[in-house]
């Protein structure tokens, strides 16, 4: 899955030959206003209701802090895994031709196509102490289900495609001549990767990681099955929102939701900046 990249080379057209600007633009804005902006505004208004002090008290409450720490920490772990696994997959899928490559390629999208609740159910069954993996890992001293590792695994699973799908096209677009030139000049494969290839893919690589991180922060369905939902230990922020709702505590729910919303905003902003950087790069290359 890739983000929408603007074609920086597009020429600015002085006049509009094609019809429909007013209509399509108006419809787009109206749609966004109703579907996206209205609920987001309601959320911001609700958390503003309690005032800055109230907001601060809720977000710095020990349980909220613990949940946020866990969520960000597990999302970070999940992103680390995907940074490594995603880069490897993108590399293998673009650089080598082998039997079954297309199947491997298609499998990368499975975590997106699979409903998160189903993923959660499957992962829990797999890593539980009576599951295929859990029955080996747990006696060996690596309990997964109901631990932070379990949360991270669920997050990693649901965000697998991001890194692969953002790095893959860039890797594909690198001209073999560049690498050949470096090889001719006597560079080792490792050096070529570090000095030539990696700088080129870096912006999209970071974009992929940022998107994976954002997705992990918000993941709910897959995580609640595997987390055990122990306050202060394995309770993620999204679940705490859910629990606050169940307790009729709307201000607290909206305050925590606002934090996640802000995190999403920042991540999106970062990825867009990264893409600008990438455009500059692609023009240089």
């Amino acid at each position: 899955m890739s983000t929408i990249a603007l074609d920086g080379a597009q020429i600015v057209r002085p006049r509009r030959v094609l019809p429909g600007f007013g209509l399509t633009m108006g419809a787009t804005l109206l749609y966004l206003a109703v579907i996206v902006l209205l609920p987001v505004t309601a959320l911001v208004l609700k958390s503003a209701e309690i005032g800055w002090d109230g907001f601060w008290r809720i977000v710095t409450g020990p349980r909220t802090l613990a949940a946020l720490k866990l969520t960000f920490g597990a999302a970070f772990l999940a992103t680390l895994f995907n940074a490594a696994y995603g880069l490897l997959m993108a590399w293998v899928l673009t650089r080598y031709r082998f039997r079954g490559r297309e199947i491997l390629d298609a499998l990368i999208d499975l975590p997106f196509a699979l409903p998160t609740a189903v993923a959660g159910l499957a992962l829990t069954a797999l890593y539980a102490n009576n599951g295929w993996y859990g029955s080996v890992l747990e006696p060996a001293g690596f309990p997964v289900v109901y631990t932070m590792v379990g949360v991270a695994i669920a997050m990693a699973f649901t965000s697998v495609p991001f890194v692969v799908r953002t790095v893959q096209p860039v890797l594909e677009s690198i001209q073999p001549e560049i690498e050949e030139a470096s090889r001719t000049l006597g560079a080792y494969p490792g050096t070529i990767f570090r000095r030539v290839i990696f700088p080129i893919i870096l912006p999209s690589y970071l974009t992929g990681c940022a998107l994976a991180f954002a997705r992990s922060l918000g993941e709910f369905g897959a995580v609640i099955f595997i987390a055990g939902n122990l306050p202060f230990k394995t309770e993620i922020a999204a679940l705490l929102i859910y629990i606050r709702l169940e307790e009729f505590d709307y201000p607290a729910a909206s305050a925590i939701a606002a934090i996640l919303l802000a995190a999403a905003f920042v991540t999106l902003l970062t990825t867009n900046l990264l893409q600008l950087w990438q455009l500059r790069y692609s023009r240089k290359v």
Binding site: A128, N129, N130, Y242
Partner: peptide
């Protein structure tokens, strides 16, 4: 208490299916 589920039935599942 090793796990606090949100509902009674989830706790049952934890005890019975997950052997906790």
């Amino acid at each position: 208490v090793p796990v606090f589920d949100t509902g009674g039935r989830a706790a049952t599942t934890t005890f019975v299916e997950r052997n906790i």
